[in-house]
Design a protein around this nucleic acid. Structure first.
Lengths: 129, 129
DNA sequence: TTAATAGTTGAATATATATTCAATTATATT
DNA sequence: AATATAATTGAATATATATTCAACTATTAA
């Protein structure tokens, strides 16, 4: 295989590994969805909302008070979580009650927290800002 | 508890739930770290890199070719992944070989893909752009 | 020691997105 | 019907960040 078939300016050293890995790669769509899902979990406000809803179903006002944030902000985030199938809601009178709609959330939090526990020593400037 | 102790303009309906949840909330630092970790996984390029490294350790050039992206872009992302303790590397001659440095990645991918599988029906405009 | 190559890095740009604000909708109460 | 409340929504703003580009470092080979 000629050097120029590849995208970058390197002399390929591991042609077989590159080819095999390319063949095994799922279609981009899978990665897009997976990344989108993790991105949803990748926000402090949303992780707090999910932790809260793992304790009890709550109305928007409750969550806003637990987190000390505006109803509008919480509502926007709940919309995001709902559209991605992570929470669901039911309306009762004027209030809207939200609850978890994904069995995997607790599991993901546990694994995520395990990662943090094991990586708690400072990796260079990771914890700095 | 008076209405004004709470942050938002609602009349609190579930005072006990709000108080209990507040008491159970871990410190913000935990949520920051957890969200930061998930955010790292929440990018298509990085999920592709991690999938690739789950197959084989690879040098920067290999990964760039697998993904069809520039070395610079990949190197930036590898730096991000390394600082967050998700990948590690070893240098051999001119090349730098990267490999996974987190036992949880495969597990997280599996759970993430389960979520996607179950939520594959379109949730309103989630899949639109 | 000179040239070539693999990789890194900082700055710039373009894009995405979290929160705020103001306006609006839906429901309940008087 | 009129008012109050819970929640949603769209636009605006501010911030974060992915990729590109150009310059640079480290290592190998000539």
């Amino acid at each position: 295989m000629a050097k120029n078939e590849f995208i970058c300016d390197c002399n390929i050293i591991h042609e077989n590994i590159v080819k095999d890995t390319m063949n095994r790669m799922p279609e981009s769509d899978s990665f897009n969805k997976l990344a989108k899902f993790f991105k949803i979990l990748g926000d402090t406000t949303r992780t707090k909302i999910l932790f809260s809803l793992d304790q009890n179903e709550m109305c928007v006002c409750d969550i806003a008070n637990v987190l000390g944030m505006s109803k509008s902000s919480i509502s926007h985030q709940l919309g995001t979580l709902r559209k991605s199938g992570i929470v669901k809601c039911r309306k009762q009178g004027k209030e809207v009650y939200y609850m978890l709609d994904d069995d995997h959330i607790k599991q993901l939090f546990e694994v995520g927290l395990e990662h943090i526990k094991h990586k708690n020593f400072v990796k260079e400037d990771f914890d700095e800002k």
